[in-house]
Design a protein around this nucleic acid. Structure first.
Length: 646
RNA sequence: GCCCACGUGGCUCAGGGGUAGAGCACUUCCUUGGUAAGGAAGGGGUCACCGGUUCAAAUCCGGUCGUGGGCUCCA
């Protein structure tokens, strides 16, 4: 009961301000604006945060009433569909217990059940059908506040022991709410739509076994994933987007373009074919070129090193289950999962002066990590790979400049490759870590200061996401389908220099401990190539294409002219081939198109007479007849400037 | 590692207890053609592997390996 009638100020999207009594619901506000709005509303936002329409407001702020057209409507719809899913499962399988749904409803919903067996595809079809039936009943979603005891009694009576356990997770003092639609009641924070019919379309996507609370030793529950939208059209465009992603899947495109393959004889270790290796090496030489001008020295280090080294580095204790081991001369050896310990050894080969710092070692060394069998996938998660790895050894007061230089290089790479949306995150101390609390606090403060200096507040903090030896800055990019990928990383490390007892002589003549910065820009080249394939659908920029142009004689009569054109382009440095097969032009164009070859040079009678070619781009654009020299110059220029244009 | 699904010619897939099919690709021949598939003929598979059931297994059962989607993990 609100005794003192406190008031709240609400700012509506049109900028107008409403003063309402505390405890007013968003639905009440919507009603006061208009009955139509109140009827259509599926939820509300306060300062961008989701709130249930029936939840009494306790604070003011920017209020948006969310209708089905609103971008966030799906969050309410999917969360509500989640309850409908649990309802449907309980109706079909009364013996099943329901555990919990999903936190993030921006794309999917899910629910976990204890049922003692796996759901079959037929089960899913039946459940989905039952869900539609429930939507047809169009029950209202009710929000009910209850005491902890009441909730406990209710779920205990229903035999829902998983729910009773979930109740204990809710901190003391927090309002406990139930949501009910029809006969189904769930412990839930909300928010939900008003009526089941506001869930316009549902689809169950898949089922899988999951460990209770993610604990590998815990019992296995059965999870069902699905998605829902306000309208069937929304669902359709979602399914269309999934199709689009499937068509760009690098595991499909890679073999189609003859870039790479896998063999069961080396699980999760890619074989790059000549074309794939070309792109791979191009990326590497691009990075090499960038860092060479910035004071990096590239090193080459051993593949297999004594286990003692990994004890020193801490990897043995923390990550030995992800390492490959072998034996030689009765010594235990490990295949390197990282380059850094090797770089520490190089640093320690002589006495270093402060005048030598920063010392920057770059290394494209092949790394092997024994990723668990269930987690590997295409090029994005492999067991054998290399990184554009580097380690900078510097003094404390050089950290800022080194981090900034690293960040700038990383941003330049992403821009060159056509990634413009970038997110930056600071990762702090994880649960498993080495080093003292003081060291961590100091390292985290240092990185934060650098970030603020470079970016202002344009970064996020990701608690617990640091490496085990120090905090890190991660760089994420968004691809052509809007998916986010972590690529670059700058990690600060006070631990390894200490473990390897690295030192340099300062201007004061005393010994000092250097700081180490781990740096990767595109990260694993394998993974990056996978991302780049999906981003471009295999249509790489001209400078990365293994084959840039193909000469297409209109018929075998013009094969000789084709040879002349091809030779002229090749002499200008263009990676070009001649397709002199006795096929029709349309056939050869189709093949070149499917291979994403940027330039198709048609050579027939007209062209032969004038020393030209008709230039067709892989975009389908026809540029007409151009002198061969001009085409050669155009392609060479794109190559030189690493242009994204054709 | 865990749960589920899948594994048929180079690729995409159909079939399914009685010793294998299609399209594309490949080879040869015909066609010499103007911007995303010209025509004909032909070759190619012990149906992932190992074991079991059966008169008979590609098909049913068990195991192994691999792949996919999740879980977990990602220094």
């Amino acid at each position: 009961m609100v005794t003192a009638s406190a008031t709240l100020e609400l700012v509506l999207p049109d900028g107008s301000v409403r003063t309402v009594e505390a405890g007013t619901t968003p639905l009440g506000v919507a009603q006061s604006i208009g009955p139509r709005l109140a009827k259509d509303a599926v939820g509300a936002l306060i300062d961008g945060e989701l709130v249930d329409l029936r939840q009494p407001l306790e604070r003011g702020g920017r209020l948006e009433v969310v209708t089905p057209k609103h971008a966030r409507a799906g969050d309410f719809v999917r969360h509500s569909a989640e309850h409908v899913l649990a309802d449907a499962v309980k109706r079909l399988f009364p013996e099943a217990q329901y555990d919990a749904g999903r936190k993030d409803h921006s794309e999917k919903f899910q629910y976990d059940f204890r049922i003692g067996r796996a759901f079959t595809p037929e089960d899913l079809a039946r459940i989905e059908e039952k869900m539609r039936e429930i939507l047809g009943e169009d029950s209202a979603f009710e929000r009910i506040e209850v005491s902890r005891e009441e909730a406990k009694r209710l779920f205990a009576e229903m035999g829902e022991s998983l729910k009773v356990e979930r109740l204990d997770d809710i901190p003391e003092g927090e309002t406990i709410t139930l949501y009910r639609h029809g006969c189904f009641t769930d412990l839930c924070r909300g928010p939900h739509v008003q009526r089941a019919s506001q869930i316009g379309a549902v689809k169950l996507l898949e089922a899988s076994g999951v460990h209770w609370r993610g604990d590998e030793s815990a019992e296995m529950l059965q999870r069902i994933y699905g998605t829902a939208f306000s309208t069937p059209a929304g669902l359709e465009s979602y399914l269309h987007a999934i199709e689009e992603a499937r068509a760009r899947d690098h595991r499909r495109i890679g073999p189609e373009l003859d870039l790479f393959s896998f063999s069961p004889l080396a699980p999760a270790m890619p074989f790059f074919h000549p074309k794939g290796a070309f792109v791979y090496n191009r990326l590497m030489s691009f990075v090499r070129e960038l860092q060479t001008g910035r004071g990096y020295g590239e090193v080459v280090t051993p593949q297999i090193l004594d286990v003692d080294l990994w004890h020193t580095s801490g990897h043995y204790d923390n990550y030995r289950e992800a390492m490959f081991f072998t034996e030689a001369d009765e010594r235990q050896m490990a295949v390197k999962p990282m380059n850094c310990p090797g770089h520490c050894l190089i640093f320690a080969t002589r006495l270093r002066s402060y005048r030598d710092l920063p010392i920057r070692y770059a290394d494209f060394g092949r790394l092997h990590r024994y990723e668990k069998s269930g987690v590997t996938s295409g090029l994005t998660r492999v067991r054998s790979f290399s990184q554009d790895d580097a380690h900078v050894f510097c003094s404390e007061d050089q950290i800022g400049a080194e981090m900034e230089a690293g960040a700038r290089m990383i941003l330049e790479i992403y821009r060159t490759l056509g990634f413009s949306a970038i997110r930056i995150q600071l990762g702090t101390r994880p649960e498993r870590s080495i080093g003292t609390a003081e060291q961590w606090a100091h390292a985290e403060r240092t990185l934060e200061a650098v970030l603020q200096q470079i970016l202002g507040s344009d970064y996020a903090v990701n608690p617990g996401d640091g490496a085990f030896y120090g905090p890190k800055i991660d760089f994420h990019i968004s691809d052509a389908l809007g998916r986010w990928w972590q690529l670059g990383t700058l990690q600060l490390d006070y631990q390894l220099p200490q473990r390897f007892d690295l030192k340099y002589v300062g201007a004061d003549g005393a010994e000092h401990r250097p700081v180490m910065i781990h740096r990767a820009m595109v990260g694993s080249l394998e993974r990056f190539l996978g991302i780049l394939i999906e981003h471009t659908a295999g249509a790489f920029p001209v400078w990365l294409m293994p084959q840039q142009a193909v000469v297409l004689p209109v018929s075998e009569k013009f094969a000789d002219y084709g040879v002349a054109v091809r030779d002229q382009l090749a002499a200008a440095g263009v990676r070009v081939e001649l397709d002199a097969r006795g096929e029709k032009l349309g056939y050869k164009i189709r093949e070149a198109q499917l291979q994403k070859i940027p330039y198709m040079l048609v050579a027939g009678g007209r062209e032969a007479e004038s020393g030209t070619v008709s230039l067709r781009l892989r975009t389908g654009e026809d540029l007409g007849a151009l002198p061969v020299a001009e085409v050669a110059a155009r392609i060479a220029e794109r190559e030189r400037s690493r242009s994204l244009e054709l």
